[in-house]
Design a protein around this nucleic acid. Structure first.
Lengths: 340, 340
DNA sequence: CTGTTAGCGCGTTCAG
DNA sequence: CTGAACGCGCTAACAG
């Protein structure tokens, strides 16, 4: 690689000192307009660009935000990143993205790598394995070291930092209530194991809605999907009971779409026989047939807010308390809940 | 932020010199086993981690690869990133991802930012705007400066560097031929404007297949979609002709799924009346109804190969010629081309 | 107005 | 076997 032009090179060429060049390029009034102009012209002509690494080392500041997400091939997470990126760029920061692949170990390694690179702050959505183990050592260490941290979507309440979450309880409540208002009473739930907090919260909203409307909770209508096994096979039992549900609330797009598939195979008409609502408004929901009614999560907004929180924290350490921003999920009505 | 432990701190605590600590931590035999062990134990105890920034500055090497993609909320591109990330980590590199948003200006800015950060190499899939303008100044400059560059998927032939592409011509050829073998003769094509190279190549494959099978090319069956306008409205005319096509080859998932939607609205039965094939094997194709037959692109493999090429180039500048790796697209047969 | 000096944290001669 | 000295490229306090 061809070495790039440095301050030293310029100072040598122009017969001035390095610090004069440095100051001139920042338009310091310490330097006479004449030399300033000369230096700036020279720098421009030869396309001088300051070395970010050296600047970072000197200023103990990188203008980089680290992001750790469980997966990147994922509509919701990539949307969040998009939001983060948007705000970060606006405020003069760059981002470096790491993937944990839902692994605790990889997540911890990512944290270490980011801190070794001296990022100014970190945004993270916790991996399933970390949640399962309830091991947040690596994150608490971050806080201990005074590195600004923001959790988004997959959070843990006991970690002492800013957070941004979707209002999962309320979203699930609204979804379930919507089904109730459709006059459905045998409403099934397809959810995650309880250690996945978002799944747990959505379950909570579902139960709350049933209770509030005096609808009995039936265990046989609730399925906890273990993603380490085949998803379809775990949902299937729901359709093998004597009495079928008349509505289904699935806590994510994949579960909802899988349900659609099973129904089609079984010759069950959706939305006539069963109404279906998913969570997360991705492409699958939009293009599935029937298209899926879902609770839209506004990932982009989540990313924006998370980035704002983090940068505020980085640039102004005086805020004395931690914030948790809640983003409400809105229903997007499509064909899978149409009244026929 | 709490300052991290440095070599200096350790040397002070242990009453040795900085360089002794530095050497000891790399297990240099210049240092006696005794002091080496003492220093290593101390470093481990207090969790010493070298400052990546300082190391990069000193060694003029960052172990970072820059990636520039047009979009991040995109199944194919995120899959490619996944592949890059996999190889990069295996070989000790980190990645920093930038999004051009299909904008020439943003792409150029990203290149600049990455070079200022002294990444060891750059992987890029060219934005539509750059392709439209045919402006690759920023990339040629990179090559001039001797910064290793790999283009993937959206490439330009005249840029002098390693490349990884999907065999778009062959993929489109196979797709079209598959439709022909289904006894379809009025095969429509939904493609991009010609400056999008991948669209252009797929068009080429389509035409080649028709010619080879002596099927006349009919202009009214070919649609070039301008993505700045409503996609659906541009596809619609295909269905308003006297004689409908009996098969459709769409150069991407969105066009194919949109076609499915229109057909459903018009009461046209897919696959009975019209067979449909898309390109890019994403979630939409899998979960649409009918599920879509597509040409699978193997984005993960593409990412892996691109990263291998780049790192090889970075670590061993002696390879005298540039390579273009071609990844073949395979057909994934689903419902939309079922014989009824 | 300009230059000297020092140092961010690390690795690498070279001298002892 | 150990340490002093230098420099990667930049900024900033201080002297002139």
């Amino acid at each position: 690689m061809k070495p790039k032009l440095t301050l030293k090179d310029i100072s040598y060429e122009l017969g001035v000192s390095i610090s004069t060049v440095s100051k001139a390029l920042k338009d310091s009034h310490e330097i006479s307009k004449k030399t300033r102009d000369k230096i700036k012209a020279f720098a421009k002509l030869y396309n001088y660009k300051p070395n970010t690494i050296a600047k970072s080392l000197r200023q103990q500041k990188t203008y980089v935000l680290g992001i750790i997400i469980p997966e990147i091939v994922h509509h919701f997470f990539s949307t969040v990143i998009s939001g983060i990126e948007h705000v970060a760029n606006e405020r003069g920061y760059n981002i470096i993205i790491c993937v944990s692949n839902e692994s605790f170990k990889k997540e911890a390694l990512n944290v270490e790598m980011l801190t070794n690179s001296r990022v100014d702050g970190i945004l993270i959505s916790i991996s399933k394995e970390s949640q399962e183990k309830q091991d947040f050592e690596h994150l608490n260490e971050l806080i201990n070291d005074g590195i600004p941290l923001v959790l988004f979507d997959r959070i843990n309440e006991h970690i002492n930092c800013d957070k941004v979450i979707i209002d999962d309880i309320d979203g699930a409540f609204k979804a379930t209530e919507f089904l109730i208002n459709l006059n459905r009473r045998k409403i099934a739930l397809i959810t995650t194991p309880s250690y996945v907090t978002v799944g747990e919260l959505r379950t909570e909203g579902y139960l709350k809605a049933l209770k509030q409307h005096n609808i009995p909770i039936r265990k046989n209508l609730i399925i906890h999907v273990n993603e380490k096994q085949n998803i379809k096979n775990q949902i299937l039992p729901l359709f093998n009971q004597k009495e079928l549900p008349d509505a289904i609330f699935a806590v994510n797009e994949i579960y909802a779409a899988t349900t659609l598939k099973i129904a089609k195979e079984k010759g069950i008409n959706i939305p006539k026989d069963i109404s279906v609502i998913g969570f997360t408004d991705g492409l699958i929901s939009e293009f599935s047939s029937p298209s899926l009614t879902t609770m839209a999560q506004h990932g982009f907004t989540m990313g924006e807010q998370a980035a704002e929180l983090l940068i505020d924290r980085i640039e102004n350490k005086t805020k004395p308390y931690f914030e948790t921003k809640v983003i409400s999920a809105d229903i997007k009505i499509r064909e899978s809940t149409k009244i026929v």
